[in-house]
Amino acid sequence: MRAAWITGKECLRERLCRPDQLPAPNPEAEMPAYMESFLSHLRLLVGVPFEYLVPDARLLPDESIRFFYLDRSWTDRLVDGTICVGKIGSREQAHHQAHAAPVAQQLDVAERSVRDLQRQRVTFDDLRSGGYAQGPTQTITGFLLRSAAVSGWPHMDVRAFDKALDETFTPADAAAHELVKLRLERLSPSVLLALFQGVPKLVWCEEPHHGVQFGVHETNGQFSVFLRGPAGTALGGSMQIPVRQSQHRVVAVAALRRKLIQQGGGQIAQQTGSAAMAIELLNPPFRQRFENVQNQPPLSGLGGFTADVAVASHVSQPDIQATVQGLVYEHP
């Protein structure tokens, strides 16, 4: 009988002496897709019990937001523990030891696509064929929000920027400075977890968009509107709304118009009729800004307000009315 070329003993010795014999990027050495997907989800704490994230309920009381950095060592240990399943002897250990670094590198890249995977925008096979986001590894930050706002407004718009944009930013500027959202998920009906790639200087949470609505702002039983210019841009001030004496939840529209004329100054839309009134009653999505203070992720809140939908006003004038009638004729 012929002897084998190499015995099991020698093979193990090879594993231990030269563990890196097969470079990890080789198709033979790469992780199975399911495993890679599982581990990259795990890297972003998907599936980790909430008690491990917040070990004491008082660390995230009701109606609070807590910003954080993600401890990468912690998530590395998570991955180590996962790979540890089914590890029986020194052969598996040697294998893990050899592959740990390439696996970590691969997950650093793959974890950026988890959000797309979660939203089922891409499949893992698409990613495999070159769809990974490129770029250097960056710090991961994020926040936990426990608030009734999470359950009441389930599709809240959350964005983070590496620059403290002012109120009158341009969309291009915002797009250039927006940080990649790695994860945005409700952990429970009232707890929202967000993870960003990089350290934000500005985070905002915005009411979901429902088109153009009208509304007022209620504070302690008082209603107010924000003063707006003719193009719908917020002027920064607000004004209390007069209400009917007999029904405190009915806006006294005529009295409001007179008050706007008297106190609005020259900047607000000229109150000639219902179009100008509608502009003042516009209720665009509210946007809460959290801005950076010193070299920390955002700590303090600064309520800002920016009109999301620009509104052009055309108040009633004889010639425009004629034009509109002409349009009615042409397009019955």
Binding site: R15, A29, M31, F38, L78, G86
Partner: peptide, 30 residues
């Protein structure tokens, strides 16, 4: 963290199989 990862992986039967497959493939190639 290590134990959480281990428990999560153990709870997922498919992952355990994939891990085995990954290792077996590596051994075969080695």
């Amino acid at each position: 963290a290590f134990e959480v990862g281990r428990l999560l992986a153990a709870a997922d039967a498919r992952l355990a199989q994939e891990l085995m497959r990954w290792r077996r493939g590596s051994y075969r190639q080695a």
